[in-house]
Amino acid sequence: MHIEFSVNGERREVDLPPMTRLLDALREHLDLTGAKEGCGEGECGACSVILDGEVVCSCLVPVVQVAGASVRTVEGLARAGELDSIQASFLKHGAAQCGICTPGFLVAARDLLDRNPHPTPDQARDALAGNLCRCTGYQAIVDAVVHAEAVRE
């Protein structure tokens, strides 16, 4: 099936079986390997992308459902070589350790910050409840999200 959609502002096309996971379309066919496969069943959030303005697990979205849609991946966060504020904040707060969960956290955090630039720690925890991290204990991630806009300002 021929499917056209926008990825990080660019028009992309794939020819894939319609139930192919968006995750596989991105990683295997568009060479965007930022989104990671953790669990493959919507539990861990490592494959998070922003689809038409809402964060979703790309392992649960068949590519037939993204025809004409707009997808933002972790690769689309930095602009012109300059890190997004959430990326800079992750660096500053040491919020990444092994790194597998990091792209999903960055994308989910960006989704939150777009709606609420100054979240409380509880709001950050709530918005990131669908993302699992087995290294950091989460506190550094929450700190990075809560202070992300301060990094920019």
Binding site: V55, L60, D111, G130, N131
Partner: peptide, 9 residues
């Protein structure tokens, strides 16, 4: 229901 990623879908 799940978490935000699931609630959005």
């Amino acid at each position: 229901v799940g978490a935000l990623q699931i609630q959005n879908r």
